[in-house]
Design a protein around this nucleic acid. Structure first.
Lengths: 206, 206
DNA sequence: AATTTTTTATTGAACGGTCAATCAATAAAA
DNA sequence: TTTTATTGATTGACCGTTCAATAAAAAATT
């Protein structure tokens, strides 16, 4: 029953099936036959809508990346020009959004990280994302910290977020989102406290 | 020129060739033909000494893991029962040891992380390692922090180490070891300062 | 309204290529 | 002569891609 406008529907189905297949058997064994079967379509469809398997994988990564961007942006636009700490927390929350902490998405991220090391198109996507996180964090820290310290705080927090996230993906019990967020919040608080103490001490001298 | 006692020599050669192949083309394209060629032997040798490709990959991961364990242990035994901060720094230094921060080893780690999610033997190895790091850190923090805070500090530091490490592996400019260590040291200092302040405050009350 | 034509959607068998594993053959040392 | 080391062609399985065939809807035509 071929209707018109199937493309967006099929694309969504296939991307979802890809995430599930990677969750189930890993990227290495996520064959197009398996993905197609999961989506309830034939293998030919994949080449038809994505110009091959690589296209599907790239689209899948782009989809996950998009969800992440949206999750962060949603929380931040709701903030207006709130203090830096609020924005930093929003960024943290966005990174630990439900759309990014499901088993299938975390496994897919990890698989893409590994394969992005040798696959140019994926590498590009991954780096854009990395820089965005670092730049967002750096920008907010900069509002209360000197340049160099802001950079280091951003680097540290970015690493902490990715690390919590990575260990959550690998752990048999999965990621404890609440705890992860708390640990990241603590890191932010400490970095900002350092700034506050500096200011206070400066006042003491006055 | 077949002599006796080739086994350990070939095993070392093949493990090294595996690391190099993964560095060059990634785990997915690290075929036994490519690895064998790099080691300057025939493909049959791999099955002969490792009972198949899986055996070689597992041995390779075990080898990297062993280097890590040694790097940490060496630094710690040189410390005797020094204060916790010294041990924590030794653990950090071990994790950022030269044997763990080469391009090839970092790429291999990442590849193994991804594939350990679906490959039981690798999963076992990876979890033993994860727990060891957490347990070591937790143990040292426990010497100066209450149980719950020691655990959180250990979880945070473990995540920070892995995160710095991960971002270093992914970054085009590679891992800045010096900076990574400094950021990890800072985290330790902050956690321990919190303990010191608590003690000081307690004394103030006395 | 009924028809033909065109477009869009989909299938799945066939093809070319690749890979890991095997094993008979070979050769040097013991 | 026996043991250990090694080779590399062969084999069987599998994977991604292609494409001719099919079918349903939409558009055009009568």
């Amino acid at each position: 029953m071929p209707k018109l406008g199937m493309q967006p529907i099929r694309r969504r189905q296939l991307i979802q099936a890809t995430l599930e297949a990677i969750d189930e058997v890993g990227l290495a064994d996520a064959t197009i036959a398996r993905i197609a079967k999961r989506a309830g379509v034939s293998t030919g469809i994949i080449s038809h809508y994505f110009a091959g398997k690589d296209g599907l994988l790239e689209a899948t990564m782009r989809h996950v990346l998009n969800d992440l961007g949206t999750a962060v942006l949603e929380r931040r636009t709701a903030l207006g020009n709130a203090p830096p700490e609020a924005h930093l927390r929003a960024i943290i929350d966005g990174n630990f959004d439900r759309s990014q902490t499901s088993q299938s998405v975390m496994k897919t991220w990890l698989a893409f990280w590994a394969s992005s090391m040798h696959h140019r198109p994926l590498q590009r996507l991954q780096r854009v994302n990395d820089r965005r996180l670092y730049s967002n964090l750096s920008c907010q820290f900069r509002r209360v910290l000197p340049k160099q310290e802001a950079r280091d705080a951003a680097r540290g927090l970015a690493a902490l977020i990715d690390g919590l996230w990575l260990r959550g993906a690998l752990a048999p019990e999965g990621l404890n989102v609440e705890r992860a967020r708390r640990l990241a919040y603590d890191y932010v608080r400490v970095q900002l406290d350092a700034a506050r103490n500096t200011r206070t001490r400066a006042n003491d001298y006055a």
